[in-house]
Amino acid sequence: MTDKVFILIPSFNEGKVIRQTIRSLGDQYHIVLIDDASTDETANAVRDLPVYYLRHDINLGQGAALQTGMDFALQQGADIVVHFDADGQHNPADIDQFIHVLKTQKVDVVLGSRFMREDDLQAIPRLRRLLLRVARLVNGLLTGLWLSDAHNGFRVMNRQALRAIQLKENRMAHATEILMHIRRKKLHFIEHPTHIIYSEYSQVKGQRWQGAIDILIDVFINKYFR
């Protein structure tokens, strides 16, 4: 039996690299690009590529874009969904490996981790490594899941997890919210090593420490005030 695999790529103003990222995925998956109201050339850059193109009329954030993609994938009958960053940080070769782990380990979610192999760990810039360790601590305290990594955008999940996870957190705090859903819905999960490519482009576009504080506040509000 074949599985319908959907790669979800949330994107905001990634017009310079999005074409390259999509082409690196080959043609064996259903690719869903969720354009979060980009104001650059994103729409034109992917016009001739074989992707499902969804566009938010207003910029909502990565969490909202992922949930839009997950709702769409569910409607399209997806069996497996992959969260994949638009900026080319993730390794397409990891996809099949993660799917293999998802099936053989009989889990619902496979979470990428940069802290399980020494090479991956060394590739993380020092300041980011420190921030991630703090985020890991916050995640552990808020969700009760003590993972080796935090806020790694590379995840693979099956249809059961796709149904169970309903993100309310529109912005970057969705990563912690996913863990909360995993815990509450008693989904089976496993961490698997992944390599992140920190290019000059992705580092400029990436989160800063101020963003980490915002995420912390968002997580707190989402947990106690919604």
Partner: peptide
């Protein structure tokens, strides 16, 4: 966004 999505020109089979 879901209602007005643009589908790929060629349908990809996933195996």
């Amino acid at each position: 966004a879901i209602k007005h999505h643009r589908s790929p020109g060629t349908v990809k089979k996933t195996e």
